[in-house]
Design a protein around this nucleic acid. Structure first.
Lengths: 268, 268
DNA sequence: CAGTGGTCTAGACCACACT
DNA sequence: GTGTGGTCTAGACCACTGC
């Protein structure tokens, strides 16, 4: 294997001839279209950091040459990755790796909106870290994060205010391994989306998330921080965020005040 | 027909019929790609009931001939309509108009799931109509349904039980016009998804919906019907469902018990 | 201007379902 | 086998961006 080539070259850049099967000797349990294979290869490059969030990836023509397929096939692969919000196409400029560090999509995962006006109209949230410490994962946290009980995790609690009004109280758990070196100070001093910090400093890009919503009553500490009575019903949002390759990388438990805001969802 | 369109920076007045679709039934001031225009034409046929929910639509080849474009262009239009859940493609069989009357997608708009097990494992919901009457729209209901205050509406209240446990209390408002002839009896006797009834009897297909979620406390009547204490926080879900052409056609206010269930949402 | 993504076309072949 | 959607290719041209 004379792989004198630089790191970018994969062991075999050619499509694994499943598209034009000359002789499909035995069983063919898995048929994967060419464009899906290309999609996987691009995904690999994203995972391995060959192209970083915010950067341009090679043109469709270049990718087609690299993978030895037609431009149309690359196009279909890129189309799907763009539909999944992993890539962003910009006509005339190129295709870019999606990032959380853009004004337009700052709070891409936050569905809470003010009852009157828009999320923009109320201005940026004021973030205050109440607490941040290193601890060992409880059985439940470990299960949700795909760890083992007792594994080290970072835990943070922060309060978000909109127009000065405390509105969201969040508890966040992160596996200590991938976020080695993350400190409370770094977190509290960073201005901008937390997920952008994760991208820039730790190469961890949150790609999708699952949320479970419930209506709950706050405990005393929570009510105090949110400046509401303990009898005020709050929206509990448990979020698990996943990176490329669907590994859980963050657990977030939020309490949302819904007297002035609401959680918006579109069904289709 | 367009000769070489002037390439100056004119404000886009004409459709810039770049690909010259031959048969052009009328005026369509569409400033959009050909496949978007085809998409609109197909959407029109869906609206007008040329193809009904559950039925097959013509093959891509036939549609291409009908609209005088290539099959690839029809394909892209159909692809988008399928992505929007308006059509369903089935390889080897054809393309079908999506319907709510299928087992697989029975509760397509219901995001509430049991904490343990799956929606299937708890079996079908038991539906009981508490109330159903004709009335005049309040200002708020009228606003949300795109009506005028005082316009006639149908209002229904029903209770859903899972495994015998009352879990969802819903108030539903429908504009009386499109649902002329709908009676309480018809509603309560129908077994199956309510949206399937709307499709079959009134030609009203719900295509998408917007939901606003809040945490609330029930009033006395609500608490009694749901068999909980008035201090139990509940998830309030206000849904507006839209038909083809984005007309609001249903307002639904649900109270969900979230002690045994949760509202699940995926972000991406 | 060159380079990028976006659209449209035409034809070939593959996978699947029904008959 | 026939007909459907699904994949892949190759080439042409358009629209936008930035040099």
């Amino acid at each position: 294997m004379a792989t004198a080539a630089p790191s970018t070259t994969l062991p075999d850049a050619a499509p694994t001839a499943t598209a034009q099967p000359a002789a499909w000797g035995g069983q063919a349990p898995a048929f994967s279209p060419l464009y899906q294979q290309i999609k996987s290869l691009i995904l690999q490059s994203l995972q391995q950091g060959e192209w970083k969030p915010g950067e341009v990836i090679p043109s469709e023509f270049d990718l087609a040459a690299r993978y030895k397929v037609s431009q149309g096939t690359v196009r279909k692969a890129v189309d799907e990755l763009a539909a999944d919000n992993l890539l962003v196409r910009r006509q005339g400029r190129g295709t870019f790796v999606a990032t959380h560090a853009e004004q337009q999509v700052q709070y891409r995962f936050l569905r809470l909106q003010p009852d009157h006006g828009t999320a923009d109209s109320e201005g940026p949230a004021q973030r205050d870290f109440v607490d941040c410490k290193r601890q060992r994962a409880s059985a439940e946290v470990a299960r949700l994060l795909g760890l083992r009980a007792g594994d080290p995790v970072l835990q943070a609690r922060r309060l978000l205010r909109f127009s000065g009004v405390p509105t969201i109280l969040e508890d966040i758990w992160l596996p200590a391994g991938p976020f080695k070196g993350l400190t409370a100070e770094r977190l509290s001093q960073y201005h901008g989306p937390m997920y952008a910090l994760f991208e820039a400093e730790f190469g961890v890009r949150m790609v999708r998330a699952d949320e479970k919503l419930r209506a709950v009553l706050p405990d005393h500490a929570q009510a105090t921080l949110l400046d509401v009575s303990p009898a005020t019903p709050l929206l509990s949002v448990e979020r698990i965020a996943y990176t490329y390759s669907d590994e859980p990388m963050e657990l977030r438990r939020g309490l949302y005040r819904t007297d002035t805001h609401h959680y918006r969802n579109r069904l289709s």
